[in-house]
Each structure stands twice: as C-alpha cells, then as structure tokens.
Amino acid sequence: MIQKKICLLGASAVGKTSLIRQYVEGIFSKKYLTSIGVKIDKKQVKTDKQIVQLMIWDIEGIDRYCGFQAKYLRGASAFIIVTDQTRSQSLVEGFDILKMVQEVADIPGFLAINKSDLPASWHWSETELEELKQSFNQFFDTSAKTGDGVENMFSHIAKVQTE
C-alpha cells in the first residue's frame, strides 16, 4: 500500500469539509461550521494497480482572516482547489490560490466546482471558465450534498497517483 497526501484548498465555505465528509463518511450537513487549522482524514482506495491510502488534508478556508500557508503542502502528491459555483467570487479566489500553490509546488492540481446541486452563479462566462479549467489537470463538478461526482473525483486522483 502506498500513502498519498492530498490537500484541499479554497475560499471559506466552498465545501471542503463537506466534500471530505461525504467521501469518507457518506454524511452531509446543511449547517456551516467553519474549520480552524487542519484536519486529516484517511481513506483507502483500490485502483487497478494497487491500494492507495489517501491522506486528505482539510485546510482552513483561505480568506482575509486566514492566509495561504505554503507549509501545509509539504509532501503533498496533489491538491484540489474547491470553488462554490453559487459564488463567482470563490472562483476568482480559487485562481489566486492556484497561482500561490504553483509558486511553491509542482504537483498535479484539480478543480472541484462544488454545489452542483444548486443553480450556478450568474456571471461565469464560458470563456472565463474554460481558461480556468485549462490551468488544472482536470476539473470535476461535485455536490457534497448529493454526493454527485465526489467519489469519482477522489478515485480519479488516487488512480493518477499510481500511474
């Protein structure tokens, strides 16, 4: 079994904690409880080649109250930037975070466009979105609420790790 560290990053309240909770425990809560610091969850994934133990780092939302901390990325094999499709601001912030990550780490990055169960924000133009998606290895539409796309995203990332 190999172990891989995956970091979830993004603005606050985009659904980082909820995505992990859905993936690891199959639970979703409507209530928003903001995370402080870091919490690490583990989950084993069987890929075609081997079993991967994902160490999933849930990192406090990056906003005006908590800055980006490069040290959390040490030893990471991949990162996911989570955005909330009902708040276009979270996409702008996600892009800023991406730039900061790329300055310190050269690892695969994935984009989660979360809350796909809700209507999308009004002014993400297709071209802007396309440009953003290009900057990532892959993007996923996810809903931590219904679970849509969540399992798929993490297992894809695990699979990439074994290639």
Binding site: Y65, Q89, S121
Partner: peptide
C-alpha cells in the same frame, strides 16, 4: 469569532452577486 466573520463574508458576497 471566525464563524461570524465568515458568515458575514458570505452574506456580503451573496448580496453583491
């Protein structure tokens, strides 16, 4: 403290949206 601060950020975002 952060809970309140972040809920506030959210409402502001939503209104400007």
């Amino acid at each position: 403290t952060l809970q309140i601060a972040r809920e506030m950020l959210l409402s502001t975002d939503k209104i400007s949206e």
